[in-house]
Structures are given as structure tokens and as C-alpha cells.
Nucleic acid binder design. Structure first.
Length: 466
RNA sequence: UCCUCGGUAGCUCAAUGGUAGAGCAUUCGGCUGUUAACCGAAAUGUUGUAGGUUCAAGUCCUACCCGAGGAGCCA
């Protein structure tokens, strides 16, 4: 007999009276010595577990049912019936139950039916998917990922599998992890005494990618609309609730587009994926609203309904100056916006996501398009209340001579970017794109504060267990 | 990397420099169509690590390790 997913059984599509089989793990067991055992079984397919009721006349009641504890893996068959108790509409009247996996020594099983600290759960990264909160976060994360692909597919973007291994760390996005098969204890040396990377696996220095942008631009200049969605690696010593050493980034790139088109895309995209969560995961969101962040649902509804505020960097500076606030970092034109400034703009001034556009060129990357004022570049950051910068993007410099000037201005070596420059030589096109921290989007959707709690097996400085 | 705070039972937390505690979990008993059940009992400790001060250190001092919040870097 085919087994049933708990989500299907609880939804009510299966008629009462039918014999069903569920396969999953025990959350709790509550006993009645009068002859009943109530067993909560979950299988990850939805927030709620299903209740299985075992009567004492089952042949294995004493030896099996009475010994079930949290975490046991069970296969349970019985009649789907209307529940006599409160708290659930339907339940399973157990006809047979078997246990493929007992919990050895229940005393040592760390997952208790109570609230654990997020720090403790992080140390139990292999068992925490069995909890309400991580289970819900896992489903929401999946929903956001599926919605991402759906959104881009519906809008004629191609998913480009840009390489994980890159040959340059000069992409201007932070420190990279080196990849090498050289003998660390005794590496080959060149005639200057440096390490001879020509003898390394790829015959040159290689790193884990810090961004797929440069590569995806090449595909953009042929396929028109493209995006990347994959793991990204930064070897920064960042110890915050918003940074990971390994995280997932989404980088769309669209041709025949300027900065405003880019901001439009960012807004449509975020609206789309957060609406998907609201539509598809009301149970999980209700849990987050109850136990994690009281405004989880309302602020997401707000986010989806309201358009983003847009302002130039220069306007943002004026607004900060006029705020009458005493900021720790004084506000002057030309500085980079600090966290406190970003928070004021989106949380207090506008009370909604804010797109800040056209930053001073000195504080932005070489590939961002120089504006006509020659002081600013067509860059944008999307700032979300409660989470800060969630998107960073720009219109790309499509004019070769301007790009070369910018590369030199920043002390970089044009030859390194030979193929990137080729894109400007051969049929260049105005284009724009952005990078979105996927894990930060999961933080925002769930209300979970720490990025290490929305990704399976987080990697961060001094932290790569499991 | 910097600043601040923290580390005590499996978990969440108490404990004026003077005998190491509670709730939950676990085990046992009772009760109940139960709902993170309830009632009673039992068992549970190298107080992060290494030094130091003191008659006496969970508590004070030093160093280190780990964690949290904030900052920087960014997504």
C-alpha cells in the first residue's frame, strides 16, 4: 500500500474511514493508563504533526507502543477517523505500528518537546531539522527558492550555472578562499622564492567564487535575460548575524536595461517571492508570528503591497542631515552609508523598503556605470526594514574607454579583465543587474534573526562543524 | 578584527567569597480522549580551560577557548 504524506491527510482530501499509512518520526507520546496512547507523528510535509491513537489491545502495545519516545522512526497504519479530542480535526486509529528506528537511550536524545535556544540547536545541526522552527524555516526557504526560479522562468530569464571555481579573486567583492592541490607543507617555488602556482592543479591560482556576476554578464550579452542562483564564498572574518562564509546568492542580469529597470526588477522579484510564502505557507508563518517575530506576517503583507521608496544617494544624505539625529558617524556627501543611516532611512523615514541610487564613484566597484555628472555611478542598494542591505546592484559600464579608465583609476590591471573587456569590444549593450543574499531573504520572510539559523549546516569563521 | 555581555545538571536558568538549586527532559508509580498534559518519587555536576589571590572561589584577578548582541566588511 502506498503511504500518505501527513500534509495530504490533514488537508482533508482523503475520505474518513479509509485505511492510511504514515511514515515519519515521533514528536511526543502521551499515555492514558486507561488504555490509550496518543502519538504525534511528523514527516516534514507540513507544520502540524498527525495524532495517532493506539489502543491497549494492540498486540505490541506493551513492548512497542509504550516504549516509543521522541525521535523514533515509525510506520503507522490505521483508519483515518474524526478526532474525538480538541486540537485536531482528524487522526489515525492505529491498526499496526512498526519501528524501523528506535531512539537508543532516550535520555540522551537532545530534542525535547520544549523551546530550545537557537544557539543550542546550532550545535545540534544534524537534529535541528526535526524541530518546529527549523522545519518551518526549511519549508519557507524551499518556497523562496522555488518561487525564485518560477519568477525568472515566467519572465524569460535563463538560469546560468556559473562556475564555483574561479581564476581571479580580483572581482572586488572581498577575500576569496584559495583552491589548491599543492603540498601545503612543501609547495613548489618559483625562481623568486614565491609559490609556483603553474604547478598547481589548474596551472594557475584558483579560488572559490565570490560572485558569478562577471561570468553571467557574458551570458547576458547573448541570452538577454539571465540569472545565477548558487553558493558563494567569502573568506572575510565577519562575525555577525548577517554574514556567512558560504551563502547562496541570486544575481539577475538583464540587457537593454538601465538602473531604473534594475530597480523595477528587484521590486517585482521581491514582491513575487514573499507573496508566494504568504500564499503557500500560512501555517509556518503563523508559527513565526506566534513564537519568533510578532509582526512576521503583517510586515510581509505590507512589504508585498507597498511599492519601494526610491531616492538618490544625494537625497538620502540631505534627509539624514535634516533628520536632526545624532549619528555615531557624521553625515557628509561622499561617505558610505553606515548601518545606523540605512536603518533610519528604511525603518523610520520611509517605513518601507528603500532603494538608494547613484552613489559616489569612489565608494563603489569599477564595473558600475559612470553617470553624466562624472561623480556618481549608477549603483543601487535595496534596504529592508529590520535586515538592512538585502540587494546591491548597478547598471554596468558598457563603454570600453570609460571602463578602462575606471579600472586604472582603481589601481587594477586591465589585462586581468581581458574577456570582460571583450564584451564591450564586441557588440556592447547597456545592461544592469543585482545580487541578492538569498539567506537574508529567508531571514526577512521568517523573522528569524540570525542567518546561521536559516541555512542547513552554516559555515562561518571558526565554525564548520558537521 | 574591534567594543559590550555571557559560559553552572541532557536543556532553560537560580545561587552576599562560606554545604551546588529549581523547572523541563529521563526512569518508576498514580490519574486523565490526551494536546509542550497533570500529581508524586528517584537519578542527574571536574561550575568552559589553565593559572593566581584567599582559611575558603561558581562568585575576585590574569590569559586563552567558545557563544551572543553591536560595529566594520558585504549579500
Amino acid at each position: 500500500m502506498a503511504d500518505h504524506k501527513i500534509s495530504t491527510l490533514l488537508k482533508g482530501d482523503i475520505p474518513l474511514g479509509e485505511t492510511v499509512t504514515v511514515k515519519g518520526w515521533i514528536r511526543t507520546r502521551r499515555d492514558s493508563k486507561a488504555g490509550l496512547s496518543f502519538i504525534q507523528i511528523h514527516d516534514g510535509t507540513c507544520f502540524d504533526p498527525i495524532q495517532a491513537v493506539a489502543q491497549s489491545d494492540l498486540p505490541n502495545f506493551a513492548e512497542v507502543v509504550q516504549k516509543l519516545s521522541a525521535g523514533c522512526c515509525v510506520i503507522c497504519t490505521g483508519e483515518l477517523v474524526e478526532s474525538q479530542g480538541k486540537g485536531q480535526s482528524r487522526e489515525i486509529q492505529v491498526a499496526s505500528i512498526e519501528v524501523p528506528g528506535w531512539v537508543q537511550d532516550p535520555e540522551t536524545y537532545p530534542m525535547q518537546p520544549k523551546r530550545h535556544s537557537m544557539e543550542f540547536l546550532r550545535e545540534m545541526a544534524h537534529l535541528r531539522p526535526r524541530t518546529n522552527i527549523i522545519g518551518a524555516a526549511t519549508r519557507v526557504r524551499n518556497c523562496l527558492a522555488q518561487a525564485t526560479h518560477r519568477f525568472f522562468h515566467e519572465n524569460k530569464f535563463y538560469w546560468i550555472h556559473t562556475p564555483i571555481i574561479t581564476t581571479s579573486d580580483a572581482e572586488g567583492a572581498g577575500e576569496a578562499f584559495r583552491i589548491s592541490t599543492l603540498d601545503l607543507a612543501n609547495p613548489p617555488r618559483d625562481d623568486k622564492g614565491g609559490i609556483d602556482f603553474s604547478q598547481d592543479f589548474f596551472g594557475r591560482e584558483t579560488f572559490l567564487t565570490v560572485s558569478g556576476q562577471l561570468n553571467v554578464e557574458a551570458y547576458c550579452c547573448a541570452m538577454t535575460r539571465v540569472y545565477t542562483f548558487g553558493p558563494t564564498f567569502r573568506a572575510e572574518n565577519s562575525n555577525t548575524s548577517r554574514h556567512l562564509s558560504e551563502f547562496w546568492m541570486i544575481e539577475p542580469e538583464l540587457a537593454f536595461a538601465d538602473l531604473n529597470d534594475d530597480a523595477d526588477l528587484a521590486e517585482q522579484y521581491l514582491h513575487y517571492i514573499f507573496k508566494a510564502v504568504l500564499d503557500e505557507h500560512p501555517d509556518d508563518m503563523a508559527f513565526f508570528a506566534k513564537h519568533v517575530e510578532p509582526t512576521a506576517i503583517t510586515r510581509l503583507e505590507n512589504f508585498v503591497e507597498k511599492s519601494f521608496e526610491r531616492m538618490d544617494y544625494s537625497e538620502a544624505i540631505k534627509a539624514l542631515e535634516k533628520s536632526g539625529r545624532k549619528f555615531e558617524f557624521p553625515v557628509t556627501w561622499g561617505m558610505d552609508l553606515q548601518s545606523e543611516h540605512e536603518r533610519y532611512l528604511c525603518e523610520e523615514l520611509c517605513e518601507r523598503p528603500v532603494v538608494v541610487m547613484n552613489y559616489p564613484k569612489e565608494i563603489k566597484a569599477f564595473y558600475m556605470r559612470l553617470n553624466d555628472d562624472e561623480k556618481t555611478v549608477a549603483a543601487m542598494d535595496v534596504l529592508a526594514p529590520g535586515i538592512g542591505e538585502i540587494i546591491g546592484g548597478s547598471q554596468r559600464e558598457e563603454r570600453l574607454e570609460v571602463l578602462d579608465a575606471r579600472i586604472k583609476e582603481m589601481g587594477l590591471e586591465p589585462d586581468v579583465y581581458w574577456w570582460y573587456r571583450d564584451l564591450r569590444k564586441y557588440g556592447t549593450v547597456p545592461h544592469a543587474g543585482f545580487g541578492l543574499g538569498f539567506d537574508r531573504a529567508v531571514n526577512y520572510a521568517t523573522g528569524i534573526k540570525n542567518i546561521r539559523d536559516v541555512i542547513p549546516f552554516p559555515r562561518a569563521p571558526k565554525s564548520a562543524d558537521f
